[in-house]
Amino acid sequence: MARMHVETTINGESAEFLCQPGESLLDALRNELNLTGTKEGCNTGDCGACSVMLDGRLVPSCMVLAPEVEGRSVGTIEGVAQGDELHPLQQKFLEHAALQCGICTPGFIVAAKALLEKNPDPTEEEARYWLAGNLCRCTGYDKIIRAVLDTAAEMNGTNGAATNGAAG
């Protein structure tokens, strides 16, 4: 079967690739573009390891056909850090030890970034429900949720630790 030519934008840069008509965006990212930071955990849209942004919307890339991104904008984990500066979420994941094996981490960071863009000051419950589409089997989610809430506090200038320090 002839492969399709797709022109798109990935992490702000124009990109093009060839793919099978039935190929998933996940496979195209990983196999055609060597963007292997996006992970496959299930290929059925249930685990969130392949989370990416498509025109500003959080999607599991295994559930998107690669040809569908023609003319659209895709954001992956590789585009989250800016130059040599980590996104605050990435830094907080490190500080809170919010990863153990790390396979789910790119998906969690992409999904959490989408959460904070939509809701900069989520409650714990809102964070837990937003991230319910991302499976982590190692951490029990505790440190992940803390990292996300701490990131929100820091980005809003209401960092809990800093406030306590000033008060103390």
Binding site: R30, L35, T36, G37, T38, K39, E40, T76, I77, E78, V80, A81, L86, Q90, F93, L94, E95, A97, L99, G102, I103, T105, P106, I109
Partner: peptide, 21 residues
């Protein structure tokens, strides 16, 4: 103590290579 893990940067940026990578 609780230093940042040495392999953490690769894992929060998607650079770390897992089995299928």
């Amino acid at each position: 103590t609780r230093p940042i893990r040495h392999d953490g940067l690769e894992k929060v940026t998607g650079r770390a290579n897992f089995g299928a990578d």
